[in-house]
Amino acid sequence: MAEAPAPRSPLAGLADALAGARADGVTLTDRSARARFNLRIDPKDVEALTAAGAILGGSLPRTPNTAATTVNGKILLWLGPDEWLVTGPAEEGAQLDDTLRGRLDGRHHALTDVSAMYATLALSGPRAREVLMKGCRLDLHPRAFKPNTCVQTALAKANVILHQTDDTPSYEITVRNSFSVYLATWLLDAMAEYRQG
């Protein structure tokens, strides 16, 4: 295995625009660099679920539309009844891959490294919800969408994983690379009205 050179963000071309992405009440930041694994386990295979949970430092969330943060600092996003996105710091990727693979070996599962497949944008601030409402059909009201709510849906014309991380509110928007420049441009445009003065 090679010592990996520094990865390049799919949003590298927008670095200048993102660096200036401060508006009144909302900020947008590139948080693309991280380890990500798509994990498929049959939810009836309790042993496999338990084994994965032990490595990850917390149970894979079984409630739809939720995310969980583990004691190991992994963020586990529910994607479907037998599908999760496991994310963590970029430098822990290789080790996580090895240990998970080791524990699940021999059980029917699929662990797929998708670290480089997505861009992640952090949108935060009192205006963040309103920015998202311009392109997301779902109910983002705090009564319906809370911290650790995590959905796959459409934002503008891109499919995203939308994860609310705190009450500010802050969101992490994970989008496939090829759509990331479109989506970031869209978000910057939607924030523009708060950037006066």
Binding site: P10, G13, A156, K157, S178, Y182, T185, W186, D189
Partner: peptide, 13 residues
């Protein structure tokens, strides 16, 4: 530019 997403590869730039 926002009418429809333009999907870009890593080498697009």
């Amino acid at each position: 530019a926002l009418m429809d997403p333009v999907r870009r590869t890593a080498m697009h730039v």
